[in-house]
Nucleic acid binder design. Sequence first.
DNA 1: GTGGCTGCAAAGCTTTTGCATGTTC
DNA 2: GAACATGCAAAAGCTTTGCAGCCAC
Lengths: 143, 143
Amino acid sequence: MLTQETVQNRIKHFPGTCKAAGLKVTHQRTAVYSMLAATETHPSPEEVYTAIRESLPSISLATVYKILDLFHKRGFLRKVSTENQVARYDANVGQHHHMICNKCGTIMDVAANGMEASPEVKAQGFVVDHYDIVYYGRCGSCR
Amino acid sequence: MLTQETVQNRIKHFPGTCKAAGLKVTHQRTAVYSMLAATETHPSPEEVYTAIRESLPSISLATVYKILDLFHKRGFLRKVSTENQVARYDANVGQHHHMICNKCGTIMDVAANGMEASPEVKAQGFVVDHYDIVYYGRCGSCR
DNA sequence: GTGGCTGCAAAGCTTTTGCATGTTC
DNA sequence: GAACATGCAAAAGCTTTGCAGCCAC
């Protein structure tokens, strides 16, 4: 559940986070981050662009792409792991997982259940940075 | 570890699997399936195409795409869930997971550890068909 | 022989890039 | 004012589509 308090809290820290990373706080960046902070729908770049154009009609799609990529690299946003080719972003960077409906394509959050990187991963000399669990199936509405 | 025995076993069952699904057994389909059955590198469509052209120079990339999509829909192949836009396929359809090196992009298998769909997924009325765990980090060679 | 499959070429999407202009600090 | 960010337009992937001809059954 995404509360209004969480949304406001994320947005409040955004300028400081940018400055700490040596990034300028522009209207475009604030709009992209605010839009993502206020949703649980894991939007694509195109969806972010369309939503933002209502308040900032001059923004270009290329800028949205650049901002999303930058924020992902800096760790302000997560990218959802999926089987297909459209990127989907998430402002919730805490440990949690996703379920994807094979029919309607909706992506929902799933709380992490404390699972750790499996021993076998460590055995192969792989250093885990982060991991996603992605459940595929049918959501409540599409069953 | 992919043994020669496993490879031969997969390939041996391929014609029967096609027939059972009402699909014709063509050279192109056999080549695509055989190539994937013999590798653990999770190739992209382009990589499948390049590899197959050595033995079947007349095959087209569009055909490779059509075959991969068809086999995925029929469950003969898995698609690896990733954060980026290039499809990667896997002929190992048994339960297992993946680790992806953030530096070199290599995708490796990880044996499943018996984890089940988390209770929260069930609570949200989501029926799980399958799930992937994707570990991101650095592989042994890139550390 | 027939229906399904392939190859080709073209189109469609998504994403990236280069550069002149504009904005933040 | 300098360095960085944006917008535009063009290009660069990756993937899909339509259709004529070919092949497995």
